[in-house]
Write a protein that binds this DNA or RNA. Structure first.
Length: 482
RNA sequence: GGGGCCGUAGUCUAGCCUGGCUAGGAUGCAGGGCUUGGGCCCCUGUGGUCCCGGGUUCAAAUCCCGGCGGCCCCA
């Protein structure tokens, strides 16, 4: 048996709403504030496992976790002019304390470059303290004017991992951007989420950055979603905060900064890229429960008892080998109902234990991704489960990567581009002269967004921009985006 | 930013156009019975500010205005 992905791909938007509700991940649309949802226990566990990985990746590379206040005074937020220009339209302001109007409005942080730089300027005085890498995992608020969507475009981003680093030189900050990219590659690889890395075009870089490197992934509806960004901030913030350090030669200079972030969208993309018509399919590293055991109690009371005991014995056996396992011993549900229940929650492995299994000690093992069934004897159970789980994980990742790669098309002529536009499925790469107006022309006529240029940089030798006909310097990527 | 559709028990939904009966059903939930190898069945019960505010009317879930919220399409 295999699982169809018909609804998942052809009606993705509805599928997503359905799955986050049905799997009890995120309760959205009932909270009486637009663009805000509630993480339910099962969703919270998934989110927490992702956060654990994120922490590990940052800690192991010398990042230090901190926690800054949620409120940023207007005076601080306005220091960097490009920055505030980029965020002004979507800041929530706290204007009153009780009945008193505040002298200085307080922003609910949309991101924390400003208040963190302010503190860095107090804490860091010498090049010897550098590089310095801080991060925090917090809620940030953005008054989204576009249509909000659960987890994907929300007004409270509840899981915003933002790293902020300080460096003695431009090149060390640039090296830090590379480290950020490595961290994110690592993260997404662990989750089996495919990505394409682009340097965002000038007009779409982070407000206040020199440049932005972005991770995008392909969603089931063939649209592209940004799932991570890394910014070289140059000295833009350190200058306006008059943040100087002393260098080896005794001189004073403004240090260099980077910042990089991922959000709730990591969870959203994990759910999306691996799912199918039956619901979630979770990689084992994330699955809160990796093995669900379903007892199938048939016959006399005595026999039912034996079956349940056998289920618990196997559960203990697996637990002692490090599996996260649970017996679904609820009496009010029939086995079939339990299958659906755990399938929608993406549990990688199911084991059925009924009279047959008790007698033979050969167990029925079902994998979530393909619904293939295996008969496994007790002595081989642990090793087989490990092998199957490993196979599921690699299958999920391979499948997701394949579908993204197959959605990337390179075209060279206007005609090919227009041909592609008829379908607009995925990402198209076009030789580009580097002029903004040519990219905008493509955006307007094809109704797509510029993702940017390939990272690492790729020259387009001997290619010509199909818009203006001039020599192309690189490739530009376009897609329908979230 | 522009346009469209929508809001009725926890969830889905009928009723709305054409105002008037105790707001009907399914699912869920609780209790009971029967069952259990892919969402069993039966009985009983429970659950409603008909999104909010205002207006029209003898009378509003229904018509009108405003707000809030959701979904979809387009920029």
């Amino acid at each position: 048996m295999s699982v169809s992905r018909e609804r998942w791909s052809s009606d993705f938007s509805r599928w997503f709403d359905w799955v986050i509700e049905e799997a009890e991940i995120y309760d959205y649309g009932r909270y009486p504030v637009k663009g805000m949802g509630v993480w339910m226990p099962f969703g919270f566990q998934i989110r927490r496992r992702i956060i654990d990985i994120i922490r590990e990746l940052h800690d192991s590379r010398g990042h230090e976790e901190v926690l800054f206040p949620i409120l940023i005074p207007e005076t601080l937020l306005r220091k960097e002019s490009e920055h505030i220009r980029g965020f002004e339209g979507e800041v929530y302001w706290v204007t009153h304390g009780g009945l008193e109007p505040l002298d200085i409005k307080l922003a609910l942080r949309p991101t924390s470059e400003t208040n963190i730089t302010y503190y860095e300027s107090l804490w860091i005085k010498s090049y010897k303290q550098l590089p310095k890498k801080y991060y925090q995992i917090v809620s940030v608020f953005r008054y989204e004017t576009k249509a909000t969507r659960p987890m994907i475009r929300v007004r409270e981003i509840t899981t915003f991992k933002e790293a902020h680093t300080v460096h003695a030189s431009f090149s060390d900050a640039e090296r830090q951007v590379l480290e950020a990219i490595e961290i994110y590659k690592n993260l997404f690889d662990k989750l089996g989420i495919p990505y394409i890395i682009s340097r965002r075009p000038e007009w779409d870089k982070f407000a206040g950055a020199l440049y932005t490197i972005a991770f995008d992934t392909l969603m089931p509806d063939s649209r592209v979603m940004q799932i991570g960004t890394a910014h070289h901030l140059g000295q833009n913030f350190t200058k306006v905060f008059d943040f100087k350090i002393q260098l080896a030669d005794g001189s004073l200079d403004y240090p260099w900064q980077t910042s990089y972030g991922v959000s709730d969208r990591v969870v959203a993309s994990l759910i999306s890229v691996h799912g199918d018509d039956r619901g979630l399919v979770l990689p084992s590293i994330i699955a809160p429960i990796q093995v669900i055991i379903i007892p199938i109690p048939i016959g006399l009371e005595e026999e039912k008892k034996t079956i349940l005991e056998e289920a618990r014995r196997i559960a203990d056996l697996l637990k002692s080998s490090g599996f996260r396992v649970r017996v679904d011993d609820r009496e009010e549900l029939r086995p079939g109902a339990k299958y659906y229940y755990w399938e929608v929650r993406g549990v990688p492995i199911r084991i059925d234990i009924g009279p047959e299994e008790v007698k033979s000690r050969v167990y029925t093992v079902v994998r979530r991704d393909t619904l293939e069934k295996y008969k496994v004897s007790e002595d081989k159970l642990i090793s087989e489960l490990k092998a199957i789980i490993e196979d599921i994980d690699s299958h999920l990742s391979r499948r997701a990567w394949q579908s993204m790669k197959s959605a990337i098309k390179r075209v060279r002529t206007l005609k090919e581009l227009e041909e592609w536009a008829k379908y607009k499925r995925g990402i198209v790469e076009v030789p580009w002269c580097g002029k903004e107006e040519c990219a905008h022309r493509v955006e307007e006529t094809l109704e797509v967004k510029t993702l940017g240029t390939p990272w690492p940089e790729e020259r387009a030798e001997g290619e010509y921009c199909p818009i203006c006909g001039l020599k192309a310097v690189t490739w530009a990527r376009y897609a329908k985006t979230y």
